[in-house]
Nucleic acid binder design. Structure first.
Lengths: 116, 116
DNA sequence: GTCAAACTACGAGAGTTTTCGTACAATGGA
DNA sequence: TCCATTGTACGAAAACTCTCGTAGTTTGAC
C-alpha cells in the first residue's frame, strides 16, 4: 500500500536546464568526484550502496542528490535499490569534451598524488 | 615610504599545489567564470578595475582572491593597479584540455541563453 | 505478515561562502 | 604635500554546505 509520501519518481533537470556552473560545483567535491569517476568506468548503472564512501549513509544520500539535481547523474529506483548513471549524453551534448577532460584530470591528479 | 602592512607580494599556490577540486570550485561561480572568460580572450593581463562586476569592490576583491588562492589566476601589483592573468601554462600542464573545454562550454551556454 | 536491505527525511551543528559597508593603505601624479 | 585612483582589511549578516544521528518508508523475500 502506498502512502504517497516520498516521490518514487525523482526530479531531474532537463538537458536545457543544466547549467555549467552547477555541474562544476557538483564536481568540485572530492566525494562526488569519486562517485563520478566510478560511474564513468562502470559498464552499467551502479546502486548507491555499491559505493563505500567514508561518510554515513545520509551524507551519501545528500551527495547523490546534489549530483542529480545539478544534472550530472540520472537516478531511478529499482526495487529497494536506487541506480545511478552518468548523464554522459546530455553533458557531452551541452559541454563537449568537458566531462572527459575532468575525468582525465582527476585520473592524472590521483596518479600524481599516489592514488589519493 | 613603506609601512610594511599588507604584503605587496601575493601568495600563490605552486603548480604542484593546485588541486582539481579547488579549480572546479573556483570556476563554479558565475562572477568568477565571467572574469576567467574575459582573461582568456585578453591579450595581456587585466587590472581588477577593468572588470565591471555587478558587486561592490570588496566583493570583487574576494572573488579575485579565490581565483588566485585556488591557482586559476596570477596576480601582481603594478603601481596602484593589480594585474591579473590566467595561469594557462600551469593549468594546461596539470589538466590538459580542461580550461579549454570549460571556456568552450561557457561560450556555448552564453549563446544558448542569449549572452546571459 | 514479518523481516532485512536500501535509502530518505528531518533536525541540528560546525564551518564556509557571498555579500555588504566603512575605514584604511599604497601608488603615482599635480 | 595633497589628492585621486586602486585595491585591502575588518566586521558582520544571510545563506549555503557538509556532516551526523535518529527515526522512518519502500520494496522484495521468506
Amino acid at each position: 500500500m502506498t502512502t504517497a509520501t516520498s516521490p518514487r519518481v525523482l526530479a531531474h533537470p532537463t538537458r536545457e536546464e543544466i547549467r555549467l556552473e552547477n555541474v562544476l560545483h557538483a564536481l568540485s567535491d572530492p566525494m562526488r568526484l569519486r562517485v563520478v569517476r566510478d560511474l564513468a568506468t562502470a559498464e552499467d548503472d551502479l546502486s548507491c550502496s555499491y559505493f563505500d564512501l567514508p561518510v554515513t549513509k545520509s551524507t551519501t544520500t545528500h551527495h547523490f542528490r546534489v549530483l542529480r539535481e545539478n544534472g550530472v547523474i540520472r537516478q531511478i529506483y529499482r526495487g529497494t535499490a536506487k541506480m545511478n548513471g552518468l548523464r554522459r549524453d546530455d553533458l557531452d551534448a551541452l559541454f563537449p569534451g568537458l566531462l572527459d577532460s575532468v575525468l582525465a584530470a582527476a585520473a592524472g591528479q590521483a596518479d600524481r598524488l599516489g592514488e589519493g
